[in-house]
Nucleic acid binder design. Structure first.
Length: 213
DNA sequence: CTCCCGATAT
DNA sequence: ATATCAGGAG
């Protein structure tokens, strides 16, 4: 059983190696306001960022703020976001979420975890995403990539995202949380892929226990 | 745990 | 054909 101290050392090294490698990520969600990021993140569930950006490029011209989503007929909104998948659930979430923002927060996106996760369709992953990107609040975004890499790297045995988040928090100081989860996501997309991890081009292969399996 | 769900890579 | 993609709710 690897000690926490050893894990921390490994996490630090991994951070130092990956940090300079993923500097200009072009495939990130595009948005111009906190609200747009919130909507984009809801749409990103089980869908690539690229496709979300395709959809939001048109979507945000039609819907300028939460008020416009509240006004829109649900069936119309469903069609507007259809290519992102889970379109009925997502349309419902976005509409209910927009309504809550208008009613409780004067149309603004709240800036705390407690408030954000109360919004319909917003869980810790989406909340951390928004908190980190527009409010500069430290947090580990546990999405499917982070989940997979944390396991492969031997940083967690848990499958519950909330527990994985806490396991990863122990490894690095707060100011590195956000960047660390972003790095894991980029590395997960580019190299440590779900189906065919590219061991030959992995710069942290020597720090990964999965190579022994 | 299951369901939601279209598009792409393998 | 099947697994997977910046998840969340019931």
């Amino acid at each position: 059983m690897e000690s926490l101290k050893k894990k921390k050392q490994r996490a630090e090294k991994i951070f130092e190696i990956l940090d300079p490698l993923y500097t200009t990520e072009k495939t990130a969600l595009k948005y111009s306001t906190p609200f747009e990021l919130l909507v984009s993140t809801i749409l990103s569930a089980q869908c690539t960022d690229e496709r979300v950006n395709q959809v939001t490029k048109v979507l945000f011209k039609k819907y300028k703020g939460p008020e416009d989503f509240v006004k829109a007929p649900i069936s119309e909104l469903e069609e507007d976001i259809r290519p992102t998948g889970f379109f009925r659930n997502k349309a419902k979430s976005i509409k209910a979420c927009s309504q809550a923002l208008v009613e409780k927060y004067n149309g603004e996106v709240p800036s705390t975890m407690e408030e954000l996760i109360k919004l319909p369709g917003v869980g810790r992953k989406t909340a951390n995403c928004v908190l980190g990107a527009v409010f500069d609040v430290p947090g580990i975004v546990v999405d499917t990539h982070v989940k997979r890499l944390a396991k492969r790297l031997g940083f967690t045995d848990n499958t519950d995202p909330d527990k994985i988040e806490k396991d990863l928090e122990k490894l690095l100081p707060k100011d590195k949380w956000r960047r660390f989860s972003d790095l894991l996501i980029y590395h997960g997309r580019a190299v440590c892929k779900s189906r065919k991890p590219d061991h030959a081009h992995c710069p942290i292969f020597h720090l990964c226990p999965s190579k022994e399996i």
